[in-house]
């Protein structure tokens, strides 16, 4: 397969070595073909093994989530592969009938949706201002925002819990949402400002000549053009908040806690609570996995761009 094997390359070699070449090539070609064939086989086996290795942990929890707690205590999930009669959706049923669980699932939605929409809207407004408006110190302000990109969320846990306590929103969904908005903004502004800045000037000028003001320009020209960037940002922020545990662990209480926190409380008795944890983890994974498979491109670009967080 390599260029070395193709006879067409022969003439490009120095004429002096061509006699030797013709005597050696067939053997070498055969040997290298066999070698590369064997290597290809080894490579394929290796990659298949890695793929299996990557799938088994998740698959194990998936199978466990469909088993009876008694079976889980007695035998490994792999025994269910040969005895599929073990499989039952009972754990899911009892979980979805549990008000605490469905309530926390709803809380996850109530936290994630506003935190995503607010970041997109507020980030887009600021990004647009940084890209297309003239004001003094614009570059300095933008630089300050870029500096905030890598600030770890941990640094704000203690200060904001006392601030939210003073404001009376500690333990409230609003507090959790605000936290995620604050820490989602630097990346949103950075990403969108760079995207907006690449919009052709002529487009904006044409709209301006039609009599559009800043607000209309922003809403009817800039935002629709930025749809791909908004999608990447939205998906990233959505998953970030949906999957968060730490922020919610600190800022929510039993009434406002999302699913991650509700599940985390069951982990201490891992063995005894596996019938809650396994299906619970899968319920929390459904949305991210659907998003992942449905929007692979935006997902990858969003995660790639935002990983620094």
């Amino acid at each position: 397969m390599t260029a070395l094997d193709t006879p067409a390359r022969g003439p490009s070699r120095p004429a002096g070595s061509s006699a030797q070449d013709t005597s050696v090539r067939p053997r070498r070609s055969l040997a290298s073909r066999v070698a590369s064939g064997a290597a290809g086989g080894v490579l394929r086996v290796f990659l298949v093994l890695v793929a299996v290795f990557w799938l088994v942990p998740t698959f194990g929890l998936l199978v466990s989530s469909f088993r009876d707690p008694k079976d889980i205590a007695e035998s490994g999930w792999w025994t269910a592969l040969t005895a599929p009669a073990q499989l039952t959706a009972a754990s899911y049923e009892s979980l979805l009938e549990n008000d605490a669980v469905t309530g926390s699932l709803l809380n996850t939605v109530w936290i994630t949706v506003p935190a995503t929409l607010l970041v997109i809207l507020i980030g887009a407004m600021a990004g647009y201002a940084f890209a297309w408006m003239d004001f003094k110190g614009r570059d300095w302000w933008f630089m300050a925002v870029v500096a905030l990109l890598v600030v770890p969320v941990q640094v704000a846990l203690i200060p904001l819990s006392s601030l939210f306590g003073t404001l009376g929103i500690f333990g409230d969904i609003i507090g959790v949402v605000l936290f995620h908005v604050g820490f989602g903004l630097p990346f949103a502004i950075f990403l969108l400002r760079n995207f907006f800045a690449e919009i052709p000037r002529e487009l904006l000028e044409a709209a301006r000549l039609d009599g559009a003001g800043e607000a209309r320009l922003f809403l009817t020209v800039v935002m629709p053009l930025a749809a791909p960037a908004l999608a990447s940002l939205g998906i990233f922020q959505f998953l970030w908040v949906w999957n968060d545990m730490l922020v919610a662990l600190v800022f929510s209480d039993s009434g406002s806690q999302p699913l991650t926190v509700a599940l985390q409380q069951q982990v201490r008795q891992f063995g005894a609570n596996i019938d809650v944890l396994a299906p619970g983890a899968f319920i929390s994974m459904v949305i991210p996995l659907v998003v992942f498979f449905a929007f692979q491109r935006q997902f990858v670009s969003g995660v790639m761009a935002g990983a620094v967080k």
Binding site: N243, T260, V267, A278, A281, F282, P288, F292
Partner: peptide, 12 residues
């Protein structure tokens, strides 16, 4: 696995 939460990965 990048799509799922660290909590879910932890349980897994």
């Amino acid at each position: 696995p990048m799509a799922i939460s660290m909590l879910a990965a932890g349980i897994i």
